[in-house]
């Protein structure tokens, strides 16, 4: 590694090592991101149009169909 990159690496490494409350915060951030992306996004929040339609043309047709028909409300 060239010297500037080594210095940057050392800077971050020492910074992370010296953290106190930061270590707890990083754990929270990682757990949160895992829950959000590996659980919520994957199993509960699929992109509806990407999942159910193959092409942008089909997606446009679907939305246009929704927009161009009269509405029936169910309370």
């Amino acid at each position: 590694m060239s010297q500037p990159l080594t210095r940057v690496y050392t800077f971050y490494r020492n910074g992370f090592r010296a953290m106190t409350v930061g270590k707890t915060l990083w754990k929270i951030i990682l757990i949160k991101l895992i829950i959000m992306f590996a659980v919520l996004k994957l199993f509960f929040f699929p992109n509806y149009l990407k999942t159910n339609f193959q092409t942008d043309e089909q997606r446009a047709d679907h939305v246009l169909e929704q927009l161009s028909r009269p509405v029936v409300q169910n309370n």
Binding site: L25, I28, M36, L40, P46, N47, Y48, L49, V63
Partner: peptide, 20 residues
């Protein structure tokens, strides 16, 4: 740290609940 990325969930909802 606690608040970071909480807004990303709004983007999830756009794609799933508010697809039109």
């Amino acid at each position: 740290a606690i608040g970071v990325a909480t807004g990303i969930i709004l983007e999830f909802q756009f794609g799933t609940n508010w697809s039109n």
